[in-house]
Amino acid sequence: MKREKILLIIPAYNEEENILKTCKQIIEHNKKNKIKYDYVVINDGSKDNTEMILKSNNLNYISLINNLGIGGAVQTGYKYAYKKDYDIAIQFDGDGQHDVSYVEKLIDPIINDKANMTIGSRFIDKNSSEFKSSAMRRVGINLISFAIKLKTKFKVFDTTSGFRAVDKNIIKLFSEDYPTEYPEPISTVNVLNKNYKVLEIPVGMNEREGGKSSINSWKTVYYMINVILSILLSKKGNK
C-alpha cells in the first residue's frame, strides 16, 4: 500500500496559550505511533505572541501578512496542501479542542475510498463524546442541519464541526473556492452539491482550553441568516 502524505491544517488566531501544546501533541503522537502526520499552523495575523512561539520553537507555520478571518486562513492551508501535493488534509483547531488520536479514525474511510470527506462529529454517537453545548447552539446547529438536508438530501448532524478530513479532489476544490465567513457548513454543502461522498465519524472533543469561540451570541442571528441563505442559494454542479 502506498503511503499517503497527510497534512494537519491548524488555523490559529491569538492562540499563544494553546498552540505549542497542540503542535507538541501531534509530534508526540507521531513518535509514539511511528506515523507521520505533517502539520502547518496558519497564523491569521495574531496580535499576541503566537508568531513568536511558532518561530522560537521551530514549528512549521505560515504567518498571514494580514488578518483574513477563519475562512481565508484555512483556505491558505488547503492551498499549501495543494502546492505540496498532499493526499489528505485535515482541519485541526489550534485551541486544544481536537484530539489527534481521532485523526486515524477520520482518515480511514478516505484511505479506503469510502468517502471524499469526513467530518468529526460530536453528536452522531452520544457515548463517544462528552461535549456539552448550549441549548441555543443546538437549535442553531439543527436548523442548519435541516437546511442542508433540504438542499442536498443528506443529513449532517454536526454541521459546525471544524475537525474534518478531505481527499485530494476536495483539497483542490477548497484551494480554489472556500467561503470566507462561517466556512464549515457552507463548504460541506459545496462538497455535497458536487456529488462527492461525505461521511460523519463520531469523535470526542475537549472543552476549549482557553481562548474564545469564534461564534458569540450577539452575532448568532446574523450567522444563522447568512449560513442558511448561503446553503439554500448554493449552486449544484459536477465534480
Binding site: 505560515i62 504567518s63 498571514l64 501578512i65 483574513l68 481565508g72 491558505t76 492551498k79
Partner: peptide, 14 residues
C-alpha cells in the same frame, strides 16, 4: 483579490 494576494504572499514568504 486582496484575500488571494495575502494568501499567495504569505505562502511565498514562508
Amino acid at each position: 483579490k486582496i484575500k488571494l494576494i495575502v494568501q499567495e504572499i504569505s505562502i511565498l514568504k514562508k
